[in-house]
Write a protein that binds this DNA or RNA. Structure first.
Lengths: 142, 142
DNA sequence: GTTCCTGCAAAATTTTTGCATCAGT
DNA sequence: ACTGATGCAAAAATTTTGCAGGAAC
């Protein structure tokens, strides 16, 4: 699970970036997650540890990781961006959002991935990432 | 094409909302579009007409229409929300975004819709809308 | 006439940037 | 040492809200 964090730090080093302090802390935290976190959530979780990180640094780390394709930026409709690790295996999930209570669930679906892949091939774009968000009411709210 | 604008105004009236001034102007503009607009784009396009609308009213109209399910709010990854009419026919498209030049293209794909529908049925959520965004480099930028 | 709608301005939220200082190589 | 990274604070960008006046029904 922390394989992503190590691989990510290594990838940054290989590209000439340094790797200490805030950057490593944020990467480690992201690597422990299995779903997406917002910049504010990252800041808040680190605030009360012995290694707090400035909010500006959080944003800068996320921007760097996103531009290097190491994390994916995801917007779930609430107006705030969330970020999650990109697995080198290509494995990834999508999101179900309850517009009533805000709950977020992840799901995977191979058939959906195949359909997306076919669209991407015919698109004329070099598609680097995709994003699927389903909005509705969750089991408790429906 | 303006069928949507008329139907939307009628739907609001039926729910007890009034329908004059800014609200109708924004609805008419949305009805003329075939893809999504941001609040700022709507404000800017109306600013130089003989019927400008305050930015706060633009947001309020969009919020109302979104909550009534008459427009869909879409986030394409730039941090700003975009809005587009929801066709009663159920017909809709998804978006390809060039992360390099910002170009947005729409696409439709029945096989993708079927795959999404199957996921939605097995999700445990009452899915009201879905959103697919493909990110990459367009033909000119790749 | 009553109630909702609108616009302006102010506020709140999220994200970015300037700059001096600090840390990694 | 050199250069990039960090934190703080200020700024920018986007969205929301308060309130007084105006319009729809």
């Amino acid at each position: 699970m922390s394989g992503w964090a190590d691989a990510t730090s290594a990838a940054l080093l290989a590209k000439g970036h340094r790797n200490g302090g805030a950057r490593r802390i944020v990467i480690d935290l992201l690597g422990e997650q299995n779903c997406c976190l917002s910049a504010q959530e990252i800041f808040d979780r680190l605030r009360d540890t012995d290694r707090p990180v400035g909010i500006a640094s959080v944003y800068r780390v996320l921007e760097l990781l996103t531009s290097e394709g190491l994390v994916q930026r995801i917007e779930l409709g609430s107006g705030i961006a969330r970020y999650e690790p990109v697995q080198r295996s290509g494995e990834h999930h999508h999101h179900l959002v309850c517009d009533s209570c805000g709950k977020v669930e992840a799901f995977e679906d191979p058939a959906l991935e195949r359909a997306l892949h076919r669209v991407e091939e015919g698109s004329g774009f070099a598609v680097a990432a995709h994003d699927v968000v389903l909005h509705g009411a969750c089991g408790s709210c429906r």
